[in-house]
Amino acid sequence: MIQLQAINKLYDLGVTKVEALKDVNLTIERGEYVAIMGPSGSGKSTLMHIIGILDQASGGTYLLEDFDITTLGDKEQARIRNRHFGFIFQSFNLFPELSALENIMLPMQYANVPYKERKQRAVRLLEDVGLAHRMHHLPSMLSGGEQQRVAIARALSNDPDLILADEPTGNLPSDKGEEIMQILEKLNQNGVTIVMVTHNPEQGARARRIINLQDGLITEETPVKEVTHAQ
């Protein structure tokens, strides 16, 4: 599904230049559950941003379904993000001005889904994450766990092929974190590809593959686990 070939990322900070990724080669197959791990500053978030086309690589090739997406324009890249990717962030990144329902409806607006259908799908997604009774609440009226569940529902709104989760449980207590991990696992069981950035070795161990990054280099790639819940 995803092929990264000799990907580099250089941050020009004026006086100094920081090489966040160095010739990273990575392949992610459809239906995989990949955990990217490593210490702070190792380049794991940068790698996730490049995979999610939130950032551009300084060099190398990024093939999505064998198509070089670095050659695409802004509009096409936005379309891929909208239709094929779903993002889950550590700090939830919900819009405080919108209700839970409206937050989930928003990505569908960019996919030109009619209002009535947007609403129906958003309600169904909220029911799936157990928050149907909180649909008209603003994010400020929800707990951290609830906000992250809304964020997951939003990530799923356009039925994406790939979920990119950046420390999804980083701001949650362990019990709530467990709930989120279970949702992600369930999604993966349903065929959604998941790439998760995490510090937590226990959570990393629940993925089917772990990629360790150190100073912008992939230092270790654990073999694929026996998949107990494979399709």
């Binding site: 936005a78 909208n82 990144n93 996919a111």
Partner: peptide
């Protein structure tokens, strides 16, 4: 700024 980043992550183009 953060809103802009999230909107783009969710599928908004720069034009939008």
């Amino acid at each position: 700024r953060r809103h802009v980043g999230i909107l783009m992550a969710l599928g908004s183009s720069r034009g939008s």
